[in-house]
């Protein structure tokens, strides 16, 4: 299979995103504002209640800041374009082209994510003096293995996130009304992935459920590795669990996609 066209798709998506210069400022600005707000929130909660679950205030601010930066990556919803294509019927033309549509969408997502990564750098650098104003700071990873594990875990999280978005977009083959369902899943995921509140703060029963779901692979896994909540064997197990979910969801997403595709081909769009 020739992958060169897909590399080109990714490059084009990167350049396309890069044309919206003004949006880079508002996006980085919005991350910084949220970093500021969340660190004041956590500082206030810790001042009133003390540290909980063995997570120091410094670790918590690091966690919250990195979660906001990860939002930039996971916020890219490249698969959403499928909804538009099905709605307008242009998906039929895409099927005639000698390319794989999911792979094309993936390449586009990679390109967009590449541009999101570029924005993370100024957002992170500018958050240092901002947090410094509040006598807080972003801690480094808890060690060399943690740093590597974090990168691997974010990579797995990125793939997982893409496949979840793809499944939602594929549902458009059956119903046009996926928008509501999609944001519903997003809201549930925002809570159960640990992006707003670390899962360690959840009450016991709910915590067990949240740890067992795939959403935990998005924020909880990489951030647990980064702040040193997981070490040694736990890192390996955590990455393994992410990979297992990824394989399962990949399988489901592909099966779902093929059924959707057949629907269009058989019915003639």
């Amino acid at each position: 299979m020739n992958l060169a066209p897909y590399a080109e798709f990714a490059k084009r998506a990167f350049s396309r995103e890069a044309t919206y210069r003004a949006e880079v400022f508002t996006r980085v600005g919005s991350v910084l504002l949220r970093v500021f707000l969340l660190s004041t929130l956590w500082t206030a909660l810790y001042r009133n209640n003390g540290a909980k679950q063995g997570i120091s205030l410094e670790s918590m601010i690091t966690y919250a800041t990195l979660a906001l930066l990860l939002d930039l990556i996971y916020g890219v919803n490249g698969a959403y374009v499928i909804r538009q294509k099905i709605r307008e019927g242009s998906i039929a033309i895409d099927f005639m082209r000698p390319i794989s549509v999911p792979l094309y969408v993936f390449a586009d997502t990679v390109g967009q994510t590449g541009f999101a990564l570029v924005q993370i750098v100024p957002a992170l650098v500018l958050s240092f003096p901002l947090l410094g104003l509040m006598h807080a700071h972003v801690g480094g990873p808890s060690g060399g293995i943690a740093a590597l594990g974090f990168v691997a875990s974010v990579a797995l999280g990125f793939l997982l996130n893409f496949l979840i978005d793809l499944i939602m977009a594929t549902a458009t083959f059956w119903t046009m009304e996926i928008f509501g369902i999609q944001i519903m899943v997003q809201f549930i995921s925002s809570l159960l992935s640990g992006s707003l509140v670390p899962l360690y703060f959840f009450p016991n029963g709910l915590q067990k459920i949240a740890f067992a779901l795939p959403f935990a692979g998005l924020y909880n896994a990489p951030l647990s590795i980064y702040i040193g909540k997981w070490q040694g064997r736990d890192i390996a197990l955590g990455l393994g669990e992410q990979a297992l979910w990824l394989a399962l969801i990949w399988f489901a997403a592909m099966a779902f996609w093929r059924r959707g595709e057949r629907r269009v081909v058989v019915q003639g769009g």
Partner: peptide, 27 residues
């Protein structure tokens, strides 16, 4: 669908408040 969305939306918000208050009871 939208009704369910609205309920989930506010349910998640109230759930987050409940989780936070169970761990950080002093506001």
């Amino acid at each position: 669908i939208w009704l369910a969305f609205t309920i989930v939306y506010h349910g998640v918000a109230l759930g987050a408040i409940w989780i936070m208050m169970s761990r950080f009871p002093s506001m």
